[in-house]
Amino acid sequence: MGVRKNAGLLTAAEATTLRQAFGRVLGLDDERGYQYQAGIHGLPLPTSCQHHHPLFLPWHRAYVYLFERALQDQVASVALPWWDWTSAAAHREGMPAPYTVRTADGTPNPLLDAPITVLTAAQRRQLAANGLITSGTRPRTFRDPEVPDELPRAATINSILQAPTFDDFTTRLENVHDAVHVWVGGSMSAVPVAAYDPIFWAHHCMIDRLWYLWQLRHPGAGPPAALLRQALAPFPMTVADTLDIGRLGYSYAVQVVS
């Protein structure tokens, strides 16, 4: 059972393991690799992600789960961490340190940014013109974050966790999700290339964790029954398959504040 932890509380060894896993997946040019995995969300077409719909949470749970499995195929002990953007540390410093340091272990930090190698020349030019990736023939992701205290607050999340229905919960949580994407800025601020930024996965672990916490508070509540057999393309999973994270082999660490 993999245990996802708070990215701001990773030990040095855990951060090293995470960087190793990202580094190895970045080095693969087939469907096990980062370009394929990140590209599922937006570009290259088709855009497969689901937003502004009750499939938002199930689809992204499947997406993060399968990416984590791809990481574990390279480094078995790795687990994706969550970025708690409501924490005092986040409101002081923004993104957690493992995602912002330029170098680690004497090499460029693979959690800082990533190349995007799978775009057509026309897409590359258009994305660069829109300011979403760096310019040139070898574009990379970049960020331009807002001030830390603009991140969502714990009181907002506590209110959302009290939402009585799944529809109400997912609509309100997705608004916060959107706000964090644009808070990071740069590549994270648009659907087609957001998933290439390594912070994307920590952000979506936080979203997934909040859904898990809501599920604990609202046993039996969930997506509309009519959606349970809906396939989550391109993944070999349905909505029903995503409802129990225990069946997916991962859990979330209890938050410990020392």
Partner: peptide
């Protein structure tokens, strides 16, 4: 406020 995470244009 509400925030919209946009697609950033058409790439097809």
């Amino acid at each position: 406020r509400f925030v919209v995470f946009g697609h950033g244009g058409c790439y097809g």
